[in-house]
Design a protein around this nucleic acid. Structure first.
Lengths: 263, 263
DNA sequence: TAGTGGTCTAGACCACAAT
DNA sequence: TTGTGGTCTAGACCACTAC
């Protein structure tokens, strides 16, 4: 049917995987086996499994063999993350998926770059607290979040250092509410693309796994109080967004909500 | 630095692309040029540009050469799509991005499969109107939507055939409101993965471009009135979701909102 | 130690694009 | 017609895994 040897052979295996004839974890024929079976050189046999790998269907272990990949995502509910009540959303979601959650964090003070300044509606160079979180599921990294909070707002409050004090682990909304800056609206702007090598390394991404990149802005009635870049391993999440029909989120974009991250 | 020849050479070119030293549309060195320049076989030179392609950074034209890919997404605002007022959201968004929109559609009656039946809260086999939309931007396909509407609800109404009558081109919410079934809530459940070959063909996806798969359910106070599978070319869209803090979307999942599509 | 996948060379032929 | 990328062969060596 299709033109090339490696495509035809890949089609056979793909069909077996998608139909369930081969289950997650099952082993594929070795490259040598494919090579003799279909009377092609090993380079071609290799092209076959490489294609399936870029499609995210199989894992290749160096001296081990090739195996059907499994898919076991976490459900991330936006409303859970941005509710005003206390709680630790990521942990709760992980438990629901029977995985053990964990995260690390590091904060440092810095001057806002032009992009971040625009999102936060401050001047470039203004002091912001930058916090980087790395989330893990069963000790595998799943998400990197870089959060920016204007120190003009948080300086001297209990949440100046996001992950110190009584509200560590709580959501943004919860934290800012505690200092009398109640967020009324969070905007998530989302895209998906293949990872940069650095992202692939940090998230332990296997070939054929995209990332979901989210630009988030948290705002009170008076303006933005936080913005963040989220990079998620796409094979680890499903995102759920409920939309209230006839709700009154502002009808069009405002400054700080209209940009994506990177090229 | 990194281990292999092709990775090192790719790193050089990637850096030039991401830094902007090479702009979208610019031509990369030919494989032969890379081959002699870095003193490697052509197979390795080819591995280099192939890697960059799977990362979504370059396009390769058969007899033409290799070029830096460009990125020019449409902003898809969920609130715009599910507002109760009349309008044609996709068209409006396209115009804003200076692209010419177009779509095709085909409807047919069918029995609900188990998955669709569950989402619509009907019995498997119950009659549904299945409509497939293909959206285009500047004559390039960007999105495939397969929508399911229970005929028990729409039979005999002006919207029985979604794309006939006065409301063709209108959003789901608008259409159901017109027959007295006002949707109050739309849930989008989203994931991203690499495309299946059929999807790649239909959406003209270049290598290194993921798809965003959305399962949508539209519900009135009395229950679901529509569900749909959306498959978007990930390089064509950014999705924007505003979340009202302290809004009261149902706190946990309900039947028909808890599944993803495919393996 | 044997098996498996990963990288690489050297060379051939084909299809398509630009000129 | 020339140059470019795409496919393919045949064979070599290495690194890692499992036994």
């Amino acid at each position: 049917m299709t033109e090339f040897l490696y495509e035809r052979i890949a089609a056979v295996l793909r069909e077996q995987i998608l139909s369930g004839a081969l289950s997650p974890g099952d082993r594929l024929p070795t490259q040598d086996a494919l090579s003799t079976r279909y009377k092609v050189s090993r380079v071609v046999a290799r092209q076959v499994v490489e294609l399936l790998e870029t499609e995210g269907l199989v894992d290749r272990g160096k001296g081990a063999g090739t195996f059907v990949r499994e898919y076991r995502p976490l459900i991330r509910r936006s409303t859970l993350h941005y509710r005003p009540d206390p709680g630790t959303p990521y942990a709760e979601e992980s438990v629901r998926a029977e995985r053990v959650p964990r995260y690390t964090h590091h904060s440092h003070e810095d001057g806002a770059g032009t992009e971040i300044a625009r999102r936060l509606d401050v001047e470039p160079g203004d002091a912001v607290m930058v916090t980087e979180y790395v989330s893990y599921s069963d000790d595998e990294p799943t998400m990197i979040v870089t959060s920016y909070e204007p120190l003009e707002i948080t300086r001297g409050t209990p949440i100046e250092h996001p992950e110190e004090g009584p509200l560590h682990g709580a959501g943004v909304v919860d934290r800012f509410t505690s200092i009398g800056r109640r967020p009324v609206r969070v905007v998530e702007r989302l895209r998906s693309r293949m990872p940069r090598p650095t992202e692939a390394r940090r998230l332990h991404l296997r070939p054929g796994v995209p990332v979901i990149v989210i630009v988030r802005t948290t705002r009170t009635a008076d303006g933005p109080v936080e913005t963040a870049d989220l990079v998620l391993a796409a094979d680890q999440f499903e995102l759920e967004y409920p939309i209230q029909v006839g709700g009154h989120p502002a009808p069009d974009g405002r400054p700080g909500e209209s940009e994506h991250a990177g090229a």
